[in-house]
Structure formats: structure tokens, C-alpha cells
Write a protein that binds this DNA or RNA. Structure first.
Lengths: 157, 157
DNA sequence: AAGGGAGGGTTTGATTTTCCAACTGACCAA
DNA sequence: TTGGTCAGTTGGAAAATCAAACCCTCCCTT
């Protein structure tokens, strides 16, 4: 009994409903970098304080961040990523690499470099777990599981 | 001469400035699936028509989509991903996998399955290009390139 | 010739969000 | 006593979102 204008059911949409609002992923970036305090987040992200407070509540509710007291008297809190939050970090790394590649003429002028434990700079690649190959559009075929939600072109079923 | 409240310079933020608005990544999902027409996008995404029109203009301006005439008389257009747009697809796949893992109790009830050319279902992993290992938070160290933008915790410099 | 539908938007007006600056309230240090 | 840190909340103006209606061009059917 789906209403005629329900959007396509999709985990991308569901994920973005949690972390797709303005600043949410930047909050995650900062807490992953170890910046856990409200004022630090305000400064590093450049978000209005009230919006940031709203986002933090939402991310905590979603189980992506935890809010921990680090001082009673005065009450002070810090935010840390949960396991689920840390698992979004690869998304951030991939997005950062895309930005470095497409949004900067000078590839040597990157705002931030991530070092991997292997000793090299991290240049992330999204690969197929089964075969190990990097993921390319033309190698993918989508199979919607809900009747009625067809796909029409390349990446089609 | 940075104003005291400039946010951290970062390619994640720059990328999100282009594709971080509501619906933008869903537009990319649809065009990657081969759904290229305005009305199709409206239906599949569930976005208001005016907002969608705004997003499409922005994505075309950003070089992530192209707008092609597929019929004069009447004038009709279709949207396709550019090379840069296609390179964002791995971000979508990673986000989808995260959503499948964390947002659904029943792992067998996924809204969409992607098949890789290798014959298996695509389960994407973000790996280090240099050593091939999957990317985990504790293996990363961040090095901001701009003086003054320190990081404090794990993933710290 | 008159509808009706598809397609790709724009317009209108009401509702929500965002944004910014100022403020609170608890504490500490000079 | 004044000033600063920290974690927010409050108030009011500005911007974005939303749904529904409208527009225009074409094709098809009656």
C-alpha cells in the first residue's frame, strides 16, 4: 500500500537521514581526530553553536557518538565516536581523497595528509571484498529487492 | 590573516560543500543507476521539484553531472554523471554498506544488492592503496598541513 | 477540435531551518 | 573584582524547504 510518491527504499538514503545533515560528517571528522569538546567543535567546524548542539544530540541518539562526563563541577562533557561511528571514517577518507583529486589543482597543496600504519600516506581505494579489485562503475550491476523499483541503464539489473 | 572563526581547511568539507546538501547524493545514486530524467528523479528520490531543479543546476555547475538534450521539440534533457561523478559512486557504495550493517536488524532484508563483475555480491571495503590492508581508525595518523590546526587524540599527529 | 497525458520545469505562499549575537551559569586564576 | 573557559540556551531576522498549482510544448485519442 505504498503511497504513489514514496521514494526508493535504500540504505544510502537511510544513512544520509542520520549523517547527511549539514555539519554532521564534519562533527564525525573532528571526533575521529580526537577533538571531543563542544567549543573545539564549534571552532574547527565553523558551525553555529545551536545547530551543533542539535546535531550532537541527533548523533548521540543514533548511536554514532557517545556523550561522556569528563568533569562534574562544573559539568563538562566530551563526545567520542562509537564503533558504528568509527566505521564511518572510511567514508570520510574516501570523500577526502575525492576532494583532494577533484577540487584542487595543486595536488601538493592538500590541507591534511593521513599516514597509514604501513608507513605510507593513505590513499584509500574502495575494493570488492570478494575479489579484491577496485570498484568501478562499469563493473557493477544493481538488483533492487523491492518490486517496482527498477533501474534502467548501466548498473542496471 | 585568517579570521578567528575560520573552520579547519579540509577536503571533506570542500567535497560536502558540493554534494552534501539534502538530496544531492541521492541524485547521484539515481543517475548512476541509469535514471536520468527529471520526473524519474522526482519520483525515485521523493524531493520537491523546485529543490531538485536547484540541486541539478548545482551538480552540473560543479562538474559532477552533465545536462544533455535528448530531444529538441519539445526540449527535453537528461542528466548523466561525469567522470568525477562516477568516482563518487564508491562513496555511495561504502555508505550503503554501512547502512545495511548498522541500520537493519535483518541482514537479509536489504533494499538493494549490488553485484560485482567477479560474480559475487559487492561488499565494499576501503583499503590502503599502498599496502592493501583495510582501513581501520587505529591505523591512521593525521597530519594537518596548515599551522594552527592541531589534532589532539588518536589519529593525531 | 477537444481532451488528456508525458515531460521539464517555475511560481506561490506557508512552514522549517539556519544563522548570528547575546546571554546564562558554573567554575578557575590574577 | 575582573576576566576567561566551557557547554550550552534564547531571540529574532534571513534563508531554505515543502506541497500544490501552474505553464508550455508536444503527442495521442476521441
Amino acid at each position: 500500500m505504498a503511497a504513489p510518491k514514496d521514494p526508493r527504499p535504500c540504505s544510502i538514503a537511510d544513512a544520509l537521514a542520520l549523517v547527511g545533515e549539514k555539519y554532521s560528517l564534519l562533527v564525525l571528522r573532528e571526533v575521529c581526530l580526537g577533538n571531543r569538546r563542544f567549543d573545539q567543535l564549534v571552532r574547527n567546524i565553523g558551525a553555529p553553536r545551536d545547530v551543533l548542539a542539535t546535531r550532537l544530540r541527533r548523533l548521540v541518539d543514533a548511536g554514532i557518538l557517545t556523550r561522556r562526563t569528563y568533569s562534574e563541577h562544573p559539568q563538562r562533557f566530551e563526545y567520542r565516536p562509537t564503533e558504528a561511528g568509527l566505521e564511518l571514517e572510511p567514508v570520510l577518507m574516501t570523500l577526502m581523497a575525492w576532494g583532494d583529486r577533484h577540487l584542487r589543482r595543486d595536488q601538493l597543496d592538500r590541507p591534511m595528509v593521513i599516514e597509514h600504519i604501513c608507513g605510507n600516506e593513505l590513499i584509500p581505494a574502495v575494493t570488492c571484498t570478494a575479489c579484491g579489485a577496485p570498484v568501478h562503475h562499469q563493473d557493477l550491476t544493481a538488483h533492487p529487492q523491492t518490486p517496482g523499483w527498477t533501474v534502467t541503464g548501466p548498473t542496471a539489473a
